[in-house]
Design a protein around this nucleic acid. Structure first.
Lengths: 152, 152
DNA sequence: GGTGAAACTATAACGTT
DNA sequence: AACGTTATAGTTTCACC
């Protein structure tokens, strides 16, 4: 599906999303035009979803990372949909998955401190209809936090 | 700490990491040179950590997302260090946190399918010294998966 | 913070294998 | 179907106001 040039392009753009096309071309060993066409095709195919700047959470007063597991009391489609849409809309929620296991959902949140977390969970989670068991875990250390997917 | 221009710059670059400096300048209402100096200062200060291309995991045969919680049997510094360094080095591990609660660690992994996951956990987790309880959760749906930090 | 200019880069048309 | 060359329009980057 992807040849060696595509894999090099994807790995390089994951490491530096603002590399110039010329530098990228030189790095992978293709002409600038050929490289450009491949990058556009990868964007077009949705393999490259987005270019973004990754920021330092602590420097933006988001030094506390929490992981919540939540179970719902009722599992009808409407309750679930409302819960999902509401939680998704919260800007402090970075990741939100429906998961297998004891809990129904896992929510990954970044806030300033424990006071902000208290406010978040009381005002934005416990107030939602049908919320059952909630467990909070706090990240003590970030041993790894990457977006870089392994290619191939 | 950050004024309105800085916040606009950070929000815009989170949404599009490859926007040209001229477009960014026009969007936030500053000259191209002033914008450029601010972006460089934010990079220099480490507020902007990295520019990256976000890829589609499913299109790269990484369609299965798993979250593991792991407890260690022994908590001496050496056992912990070795575990932390080894797990961090695995390319399929995107996030790896030491956490509060029943488990010691949370590991976020992307693999191709359940067979690859079986291989991962048997060859790369259970083989490590001092691994105690391990729980696996699989992401059924990705309701939200962002890197965009709320600013201000 | 703005202006302007030289050096560099993106983008697409066209020819080649 | 995919690569390379080349030309022009656009962008970066920096010295100076």
């Amino acid at each position: 599906m992807f040849d060696s040039y595509d894999r090099k392009i994807l790995n390089t753009l994951q490491a530096d999303g603002r590399i110039t096309n010329q530098q990228l071309a030189e790095k992978i060993g293709l002409s600038s035009a050929a490289t450009w066409r491949r990058v556009k095709a990868l964007e077009e195919a949705g393999v490259i979803r987005q270019y973004t700047a990754l920021l330092d959470a602590a420097k933006l007063s988001r030094g506390l990372r929490a992981i919540l597991t939540v179970s719902l009391l009722r599992h009808d489609a409407d309750s679930k949909k409302l819960f999902e849409d509401t939680v998704s809309s919260y800007p402090e929620v970075l990741q939100f998955f429906s998961i297998t296991g004891d809990a129904d959902f896992m929510i990954h949140v970044v806030v300033a401190d424990i006071q902000s977390y208290d406010q978040f969970i009381n005002e934005k989670i416990f107030t939602l209809e049908g919320v059952g068991q909630v467990q909070s875990h706090f990240a003590l250390r970030e041993l790894k936090n990457e977006t870089t997917l392994p290619i191939g």
